Amino acid sequence: MVIVAAELDASTERIINYLNDKVSVAVNAVFFSVFRDGENMYLSRSWMIDPVETEERAANTGQRGEWNGEFYVSFGTSPGGRSWEDAAEYGFISAGGGRWYSKTLFMLKPGDRVWVNIPGTGYVGVAEVSGHPVVADEFITSVKSLQGQYYMAADCGEDEAEYFVPVNWRHKVPATSAVNEVGLFGNQNSVARPRTPKWEHTVTRLKELWQIS
């Protein structure tokens, strides 16, 4: 739930904080202000709470338990678009096509472990994050001959661009050998910190299948 306002009174702010902290309801507020500079007008936007926090809370609605420290990654692929073969060869995960998809990548930092799932296909790898997220224009160089097509900030702007997180693969398999079993965790967020027994089961099962300590 998002409240859009020019300003917010103190009681409403307290209610929003209470719902987020005590009731685990994913609610946020966004403020818009208009500024004029001569004949030009500018619209600014600011969030009351970091949107990544409320997205994660929405993903974990109804779930109880401690986070096990392992990140879930949804790596969407499409013909002529994002390619798992690229990610496996050049060591990255990525998301783009809008801030909703790319912003959760910024939850990751070097040293984090990620388990990568291709929606509708299955789990294809586990890796350790080796760098911070960067926009496609910085990650893709003449050295990288990628099969897929990725949105560049120079062409579509930073909001719509693809963002890349470099990783070191601990284990990876072709999409044809993906692990797709009943009971494994799945989520639409590009990156998530699940707090559900199903996630514990998923990590334990993948460690067993791929012999990961």
Rank of each mutant, 00 (worst) to 15 (best):
T77F: 04
E13L: 10
G98L: 09
T202W: 00
F71N: 06
Y151C: 08
A59P: 00
V143K: 11
A192Q: 09
T204S: 12
I118T: 08
F164G: 09
Q149L: 06
N168W: 00
S213H: 02
G81S: 09
R195C: 04
H171N: 10
V143R: 13
S11N: 07
F35M: 13
P119D: 07
S190L: 05
A136N: 13
I15N: 11
T104R: 03
W100M: 04
S78M: 13
S102I: 03
W47M: 03
A153C: 03
S142F: 00
P194K: 02
N60E: 11
V52L: 08
G122N: 05
A5K: 14
G96I: 06
P133V: 06
T176E: 15
E70A: 12
E128R: 11
I16Y: 08
G131H: 12
K172Y: 00
F92H: 07
L43W: 10
E70D: 13
N40S: 14
V167L: 10
V179L: 09
L146Q: 01
M152R: 14
G97K: 07
D155R: 14
R82C: 14
R99I: 10
P110I: 03
R170Y: 01
S177F: 02
E160G: 10
M48Q: 05
S11R: 02
G81A: 14
I118F: 00
K172M: 05
I15W: 11
R14E: 12
V129F: 10
P197E: 04
L146V: 11
F185I: 03
Q211W: 00
S177R: 06
L206Y: 08
D9L: 01
A153Q: 08
W67K: 10
E39H: 04
H201Q: 11
H171W: 01
A192F: 00
V30D: 04
I49V: 12
Y151G: 05
D155T: 15
I15D: 13
T204W: 00
V203Y: 01
T61E: 14
Q63C: 15
F106Q: 05
D112Y: 02
F71S: 11
L19Y: 07
L146T: 07
S94G: 14
R205H: 10
N60L: 06
G125S: 05
V143I: 01
Y90H: 13
W84I: 11
Y163A: 04
W199G: 09
S74P: 15
V116G: 02
V179W: 02
C156P: 01
L8Y: 00
K109T: 11
V23H: 07
P79I: 06
H132Q: 08
R45G: 15
V116L: 04
N189K: 13
Q149R: 12
G76D: 13
R36H: 04
Q149H: 12
V126F: 02
Y150K: 08
P110F: 00
S142W: 01
H201P: 06
T196H: 13
L43I: 15
